[in-house]
Design a protein around this nucleic acid. Structure first.
Lengths: 151, 151
DNA sequence: TATTGTTATACTCTATAACTATA
DNA sequence: TATAGTTATAGAGTATAACAATA
C-alpha cells in the first residue's frame, strides 16, 4: 500500500457551489458563531440578546409574544425569561392571572446598551465591506425571500 | 383584573430589523427546513445529501476530507458514512491501512440524481423570484462575505 | 509525531406532550 | 373552549476527549 501520494489536486470539486441555500447557511453559521463570541463577555447568547432587545423595544410584552417574534417556542421561553429575571435584567408585572408584562430593569437597560454596541461592532466587522446602501439592499432582499418562502 | 383589552397595536417594534445577521439566520432556518422536507421522501437529510453529492463529485475522497468540505467534524462523520454505506449507497475501498476511498454505488447514483433534482426544485421554489443573474450575484455576495469573515 | 477512524459523551437547540390556572 | 405559563422529555446537531491503528 505504499503509493507515491496521489496527484493531490487538493482542490475538491464543490457540487454545492451553485446553491444559494448552501452559501446562505454557511454564512449564517459563521455569523452566528461570531455573534456568540461577541456577546459571551456579557454572559449572554444570541437568544438572550434577542429577548432583551425585543422587550426593551416593546415594554409590557408577554413572553409568548416575545417567543413568536423571535421564533422560540413557548415551552423554551420559560427557562430563558426565568434566568434573565433571576439575574435582575427583567422585571415582571402581572397583567391578568396568567400572563405577566415584561420590562427591562434599570440594570437591564445598561446591559441592553452594551448588547446593542457589541452587536453593532460585530455587524460592522462582518459586513463593513458593504456600504450602507448595499447593506440595506441585502437586508431587504433577504427579508423578501424570507416572506416569499411560506413557512 | 378585568381590563378593556389594551390598545392592541398588534404590530411589535422589531429592534433586530436593521441587522443583516438577523435576516440571514431567519432565512437560512426557513430554507433548511424546506430543504429537509424536500429530501425527507428519500429518507435523507441535508447532511446526508451533502455527503453523497460531495463524494459523487470527488470519487475516492476520504471521509475526513468530506467532513472538512461540508463542515462536519471527523467524529460525527463516522455514523453518517456508516449509515449510508449500510444502505448500499456508498462503497468503501481501502486506500492505506487507515483511510478508505469513498465512491457512490450504482444504487447511490440513482439516489444522487433524485437528490439533485429535488434540490433544484427546492431552490427554484424559494429563489425563483430572482432571475439567473440576480441569483448568481447573491450567491457570490454571500460567498464573499463568508470568506471575509475569518472563522 | 501526526493522521484516520472510532467510540463515548456532553451540551445546546429544538420539538412534543401533558398539565395548571386562568380567560 | 382557548390561552399563558410550566415541566418533563426526546431528538437533532455539534463539540471535546481519548483511544487504536497506521503513516
Amino acid at each position: 500500500m505504499t503509493r507515491p501520494k496521489a496527484p493531490e489536486t487538493s482542490v475538491l470539486a464543490d457540487p454545492l457551489d451553485h446553491l444559494i441555500g448552501y452559501h446562505l447557511r454557511r454564512l449564517s453559521v459563521r455569523v452566528m458563531t461570531d455573534l456568540g463570541r461577541s456577546l459571551a463577555p456579557l454572559d449572554l447568547n444570541p437568544a438572550d440578546a434577542s429577548v432583551l432587545l425585543t422587550i426593551e423595544a416593546n415594554p409590557g410584552i408577554t413572553q409568548s409574544e416575545v417567543g413568536k417574534a423571535i421564533g422560540v417556542l413557548r415551552a423554551n421561553m420559560a427557562p430563558l425569561v426565568g434566568a434573565l429575571t433571576e439575574r435582575g435584567l427583567l422585571e415582571q408585572a402581572p397583567v391578568d392571572g396568567r400572563s405577566t408584562a415584561l420590562r427591562i430593569s434599570g440594570k437591564g437597560k445598561a446591559v441592553c446598551r452594551e448588547v446593542a454596541e457589541r452587536i453593532a461592532t460585530h455587524e460592522n466587522r462582518l459586513f463593513g465591506a458593504l456600504d450602507a446602501a448595499a447593506r440595506k439592499r441585502l437586508a431587504q432582499e433577504l427579508q423578501a425571500l424570507w416572506q416569499a418562502a411560506a413557512a
